[in-house]
Design a protein around this nucleic acid. Structure first.
Lengths: 278, 278
DNA sequence: CAGTGGTCTAGACCACTCA
DNA sequence: GAGTGGTCTAGACCACTGT
């Protein structure tokens, strides 16, 4: 089993739906047949599907109709078309699990390596992280709110790209109030040294004590699809992360965008019966 | 050639970009223009786009080409086609925020209402939850692992559907070891009474102390798309939730599937420097 | 009813891959 | 060069929505 999270919810079919099956347009029929073959394992991960022309012959339809069927499967994220080569069953490599423990100081000190590198190395892949830019900008509205700063004030913006075996898997844009970052490497240095960014925050007296993570999912914008090399049919996870210090003051917000077919999130936390956020 | 949107204002472009632009196939060009208009607010949420035939006229292309452009935008989740009516800019209603505090006993006792109902009512919508089936099944592999039970043993499976204003927004399938559920309402009753399911676990001595949530995102299966009425271009969030009691023993696993355009997740938790999971 | 999207046909040319 | 997917054309009929 190579998926972090298991099978989709099973649902029963009503007789209504079975009848409906006969009436399905040819493109759906072809897609249904191929999907069933994939799920039955007859078409294993990595296997090539019949070509568009071949499907058209088999089902006595126009090529466009066969093509549409393949488009449906691609939209579901089941297959990936490769120009000049064919259409292939997508395989689902193990998801990278991003846990909350990645912020732990103990983990940081134990390894001296960023949590991202650690996770990628655990998979036997080669990590690379790259700070592409450091700028001063007014914060986006949602970030300003979470940083508890004014929308017209300026913040430091650090844009980071993360790779595994030179495949881009994440982007993270970090926002830090100027009042905190000013004069520190956070505002100027792309290389933050041993223990990475949270060690530098600690140098400034901001010890990470709590985090808040707001998770959503959506289809990538064309820019994201290009930048992260996201194939059709793959959504992104968007995580708006806020770091809070021991006084519960926010000192950093990062917006992560992750390929959902390569990343999962893993949280374990206590249930609190008092002192929770409103 | 006509353009839907006026000629772009003069701007600096690298020769690279100019070449790129010229070389783009017409369907992409049309999609780009429409996307720009949507992002600029010229086509507001809910607005109708020009019809396929109208776009074909404007761009002097075949209808199929205009149609393909609309298909691209639909795949990005930007627009939704309605048969016989037109293609409309999707609006993004406020996401429902599912926080970890929804498991808190205090919240449970304060309101006497399930966390789902509470969240939906907060939005001025009408909640409905429905337990569709209670069965005994062998657990899926990932569930067995997290429940720390054998894959051949049986577990109670409860399938719940959640609605807001009669719109389906979530499915949750809960698995409970037979050894725990047997003889309690959990194994037989679709209505679990005041305080809902976690109150019943407490009756049995299992007080929820920690939770683990594994989050991923993917495109829905056709069954999920049908059951949750998910339009094209909208992914689902899949949450594999594990409840742990005060002895850190798992007593319940639920797999939630949520429409990603209607739901988000919101976690706040302490950073622990010891005792974290490996 | 006219107008919309959904689907299909039977061609065509291009760009890409691989032997 | 043969085979593949990517894109396009100029039609066609159907199902659905509104007035």
């Amino acid at each position: 089993m190579y998926r972090l999270i298991g099978e989709p919810v099973e649902m029963v079919m009503t007789s209504d739906e079975i009848e409906h099956r006969e009436a399905r347009p040819p493109s759906r029929r072809i897609a249904d047949d191929l999907r069933a073959a994939i799920q039955a394992g007859e078409l294993a991960a990595g296997a090539r599907l019949p070509s568009e022309r071949e499907l058209a012959r088999q089902y006595s339809t126009a090529r466009n109709t066969a093509r549409e069927a393949l488009g449906i499967l691609q939209g579901e994220g089941l297959v990936i078309a490769q120009h000049g080569r064919g259409v292939f069953v997508r395989d689902r490599p193990p998801l990278m699990r991003l846990g909350a423990d990645r912020y732990s100081r103990a983990a940081r000190e134990r390894t001296g390596v960023s949590p991202f590198r650690l996770e990628v190395m655990k998979q036997g892949r080669t990590p690379r992280a790259e700070c592409r830019s450091i700028t001063r900008v007014p914060p986006p509205a949602d970030v300003a709110e979470r940083l508890d700063v004014d929308e017209v004030s300026e913040v430091i913006r650090r844009e980071n790209w993360y790779f595994a075996d030179d495949e881009p898997v994440q982007v993270g844009v970090t926002y830090i109030p100027v009042s905190i970052a000013e004069g520190s490497p956070l505002a100027t240095e792309t290389q933050l040294g041993r223990g990475s960014i949270y060690a530098r925050f600690e140098d400034l007296g901001h010890v990470i004590a709590r985090i808040r993570e707001e998770v959503s999912a959506r289809m990538p914008t064309p820019e994201e699809a290009r930048g992260l090399a996201i194939p059709p049919g793959v959504p992104v996870l968007e995580v708006l992360h806020t770091s809070l210090d021991t006084q519960r003051r926010p000192f950093e917000v990062t917006r992560f965008v992750l390929r959902a077919d390569r990343n999962g999130l893993d949280y374990e936390m206590p249930i609190e019966d008092s002192g929770g956020v409103p």
